[in-house]
């Protein structure tokens, strides 16, 4: 197979980027998209040019590192998959393929197709945890958990933090990511004590980053490689509303006068 590739090249954050055109031939349909990019980079390198920088690591769809917008779709045209699990047989011979980075003010381009997703980490750090130290803990079976609840939490926890939701959202919002993190822990019994503070802190951190606002377009869900549902966004909205209306700290005010 052969392809014409239009790839976004950009030297660094703040630099002006543009599309560069490449022709690639002898592509096997069994190559993964990133393997095709490897071959392209070999070709570019042999022409004494600087290869295209792109992120990837596990190449099995779980680390969330790969991040390409292919023909306008984050992670490409096949739903429910990451870029690394996309294969060239999913494209037609002779096609022109456009490859861009995640485009979001919150994810500045570091180089070519590599973006800085540390905003996600800061959202997580704001409250995406249960405060526990390492050490002896009660037996897990002392707190039975309905398997349906646990599975629902796992549906949310399956988020791989790739950022496709932000890239896909017409508004560049990070609601699905934040909602997945919030929902996972607010469903689990272990997450209850910090339930209110968690959603408030995480939402406010999300808002402090340069993400847009949710428009309920559901593009995030449609492009999420793990198929995480916008129902979790509804759940986060509910949690947020609940947290805002939760009683204030009443310590020391528990008198009836």
């Amino acid at each position: 197979m052969k392809f014409t590739l239009e790839i976004w090249r950009q030297d660094g954050p703040g630099h002006i980027g543009d599309f560069a055109h490449y022709e690639i031939a002898d592509v096997s349909p069994d190559m993964s998209f990133l393997e095709m990019m490897d071959v392209l980079n070999e070709q570019i390198s042999e022409a004494d040019q600087v290869p295209v920088a792109f992120d990837s690591d596990c190449r099995e769809g779980i680390c969330g590192m790969c991040s390409m917008v292919i023909n306008g779709s984050p992670h490409g045209p096949i739903p429910g998959t990451t870029t690394c699990q996309l294969y060239m047989r999913h494209f037609s011979d002779g096609e022109t393929i456009t490859i861009e980075p995640w485009r979001s003010a919150a994810f500045p381009v570091l180089k070519d197709l590599i973006v800085d997703r540390s905003a996600f980490d800061r959202v997580l750090q704001a409250g995406g945890y249960v405060t526990v130290h390492s050490g002896p803990k009660p037996d897990p079976n002392s707190v039975p958990i309905d398997p349906h609840v646990s599975e629902e939490a796992l549906d949310a926890a399956s988020c791989i933090g790739c950022g496709a939701c932000v890239a896909a959202c017409p508004n560049g919002a990070a609601m699905l990511y934040t909602a997945a993190k919030v929902s996972h822990l607010s469903l689990m019994p272990q997450g209850q004590p910090e339930r209110e503070s968690r959603v408030l802190n995480m939402v406010h951190q999300m808002e402090a980053e340069d993400f847009g606002a949710c428009g309920n377009h559901a593009e995030c869900q449609a492009h999420c490689p793990k198929g995480i549902s916008i129902n979790f966004i509804g759940m986060m909205n509910r949690e947020y509303r609940r947290a805002l209306s939760a009683p204030k700290d009443r310590r020391g005010h528990m008198d009836s006068q």
Binding site: Y129, V130, V132, S134, G135, P136, K137, P138, D139, P140, V143, I145, P147, S150, E151, A153, L154, A157, H184, L185, L187, M188, Q190, G191
Partner: peptide, 11 residues
């Protein structure tokens, strides 16, 4: 025990 306390949703 540690993982469950952190909220890991085991089967």
């Amino acid at each position: 025990d540690q993982a469950v306390a952190q909220g890991v949703p085991f089967a």
